[in-house]
Amino acid sequence: MRGLRALALLALALLGLGAAPAAAGPVPAPPGASSCSGCHGAHGEGAFAPLAGRPASDIAAALAAYRSGERPATVMTRIAKGFTEAESRAIAAYLEQQAAP
């Protein structure tokens, strides 16, 4: 299985098909993390700050400030309240590992 997977990834690389992010496959996204890119897209399309590759401590601190309401926001306060401190840290750590756009 592992060998096949490695071969498959190698085939992908050789074919130059889409740069798979380093964390794809084996490192699963923690709960909630895959929803963030609905706005903070991998392509950095304008208004939303790109998160991929940002230091985890920055992301976690921002999420904590949104959760407590200390940092004002249009939408992030409503979203951040859906995640515990531990979940927020896991998401932040995951996002840090994603290739920056």
Binding site: G41, E45, V75
Partner: peptide, 17 residues
Amino acid sequence: RAEAAYAEAWYRTITAD
């Protein structure tokens, strides 16, 4: 106004994604 701009940004982001 900010949310109107975010709405447009969301559409560009999601369709690119």
